[in-house]
Computed example of a mutant assay.
Amino acid sequence: MLEDIVSNVSGARHAILLSADGLRRGATSGMSADLADTISAAMSGMQSLSRATARFAGPEDNPKWQQTVIEFKHGWIFLIAAGQGAYLAVAAAPDIDMQEITFRMHQLVSRLGKELMTPAREMADKQ
């Protein structure tokens, strides 16, 4: 499913699904495992920094982190929540349509949530 966003959004380069503690849960092809692990750890730290600085954005009593966007001369990184204890990070080209990429990321998170859910166990009747 991560490959879908890179294949279908012009300018999307890489996608990584990571746990809140920075462990890689999935990554698109074309990235080495070492790079994906490094980026996963960095994105976890970035998300933590974003939450810690939320009050800087305004006087909200209970600020809620929604997204972190980082701009580089050569591209963008977008980071959003992907369910309980998970995050989705996508790297993109400088000319990416920001509205499209964030929309697609939220769609992917919705799909991932449905796929990763474990159905409730049913008790077998004892005879």
Rank of each mutant, 00 (worst) to 15 (best):
P63S: 14
S110F: 06
G83A: 06
I77A: 03
A91F: 05
W76F: 04
L116N: 08
A92L: 01
I96Q: 01
E100T: 08
Q84F: 06
L116A: 08
F103D: 11
I96L: 01
L112E: 02
H106T: 13
K114Q: 15
S110P: 04
Y87T: 09
H74R: 14
I80L: 02
V69E: 07
W76V: 00
I80T: 09
V69D: 05
F78C: 01
G83L: 08
P94I: 03
T118I: 15
P63G: 14
Q66K: 13
G75S: 05
E122Q: 15
M117E: 09
P94L: 03
V90A: 02
M117W: 06
M105L: 08
M117G: 08
M105S: 11
T118A: 12
A91S: 14
M98Q: 10
G85D: 10
A86M: 15
G85N: 05
G113N: 13
E71F: 04
A81D: 14
D61W: 00
Q107K: 14
R104V: 10
L88E: 06
I96E: 00
F103E: 11
L112A: 03
A92N: 03
T68Q: 10
V90N: 00
E60P: 01
L88M: 04
V109C: 04
P119N: 12
Q84A: 09
L88F: 02
T118D: 10
I101H: 04
K114R: 15
I101C: 03
F72S: 06
W76S: 01
